[in-house]
Design a protein around this nucleic acid. Structure first.
Length: 306
DNA sequence: CGTGTTTGACCGGCGC
DNA sequence: GCGCCGGTCAAACACG
């Protein structure tokens, strides 16, 4: 991986599913590996794929948001959502494609995230690699391979978050199943799996080797169930925002705390099916957000005020 | 006792 | 073919 060779991987991202697989300079998984696994390059990749003026904007927000802190969560969210489909490989989960609309009381922004391409064949009918030790088949493939084809991952979403804690709460319960040292990084990578037995979503959490304050979280797969509850009094962090994307179709989460500071112009997001957002947390306040929104219907107050 | 974490071993992909 | 590396497994352990 990592054979950039001057090729912009994101130019392969189009609204047409034909880009997915195979063909092109790299497969989708390669692109994602390239894009997400090289954490040290992520920011620069963003910048690389953005107009220079946008890059400056992001950097500016980055600086500004360093002062916007909370004990455990702080600063800017750089998030990337990718419309992602396995094309012929059928990488998409069989759960659902969905969307999440996030709005704040100030009405400053709506964040609409969708995966229009996530609709191909179920991953369940794809062969899983032989499991490691022993014979117990792992539930649902996280990577699938056919003969002569590169392995295909389920849809993945990566986030960069400035945070002091590695594992950010997102309303779902996770079980850690592994930790590995990462080459060229002093920080280990942790592997988590959703504790819901029917859910195959995984996520990886690691710190940027370049900026230890940045946590890189990568989701893989889609939740087949609702979250168990939102932490921190209704505030939902970036993970939850994207975890919500994995919710059943038509289900909408309401995130009163999220304030969209800027969004890449549609000309970029539409052509490449990439959304890069820089979001900030709400004002640090002793009070939890009062906007119950949908949370009032979903999450018991006791949980929200944890 | 149930649930979650730690950690070494194992396996497969991939580059050389 | 070999070695490196990422990802996963599962036994042991910790904790409430």
């Amino acid at each position: 991986m990592g054979d950039k060779a001057g090729v912009d991987p994101l130019t392969e991202f189009t609204s047409d599913s034909s880009w997915a697989l195979p063909g092109g300079p790299d497969s989708v998984s390669d692109t994602f590996n390239y894009f997400f696994d090289r954490e040290s390059a992520i920011l620069s990749e963003f910048e690389w794929n953005l107009q220079p003026d946008h890059t400056e904007e992001i950097e500016r927000f980055d600086q500004l948001d360093r002062t916007d802190t909370r004990p455990d969560l702080a600063g800017t969210f750089f998030s990337v959502s990718e419309s992602f489909a396995g094309g012929g490989g059928g990488a998409a989960s069989s759960c659902v494609s969905g969307s999440v609309t996030s709005s704040n009381p100030g009405g400053s922004a709506n964040v609409l995230i969708s995966n229009p391409l996530m609709s191909s064949s179920s991953s369940e009918d794809l062969p899983e690699k032989s499991t490691g030790s022993g014979g117990k088949p792992s539930e649902i493939p996280s990577k699938v391979k056919k003969k002569g084809q590169k392995r295909i991952r389920q849809p993945r979403f990566a986030f960069m978050t400035k945070s002091e804690v590695d594992h950010l709460e997102d309303g779902y319960r996770w079980r850690k199943y592994g930790q590995k040292a990462v080459k060229n990084s002093p920080f280990p990578r942790s592997y988590y799996r959703c504790t819901n037995s029917k859910c195959t979503v995984k996520k990886r959490v690691e710190r940027s080797s370049e900026d230890s304050t940045i946590v890189i979280t990568t989701y893989e797969g889609q939740h087949c169930h609702h979250s168990v509850g939102f932490p921190r009094g209704g505030f939902i962090n970036h993970e939850a925002a994207f975890a919500g994307q994995l919710a059943p179709s038509g289900f909408q989460f309401h995130y009163p705390g999220i304030q969209l500071r800027r969004q890449i112009p549609p000309s970029i997001t539409q052509s490449k099916q990439v959304v890069v957002e820089s979001r900030t947390l709400p004002e640090p306040s002793p009070q939890f957000p009062t906007d119950d929104g949908l949370l009032g219907d979903i999450v018991p107050p006791g949980i929200r005020n944890r």
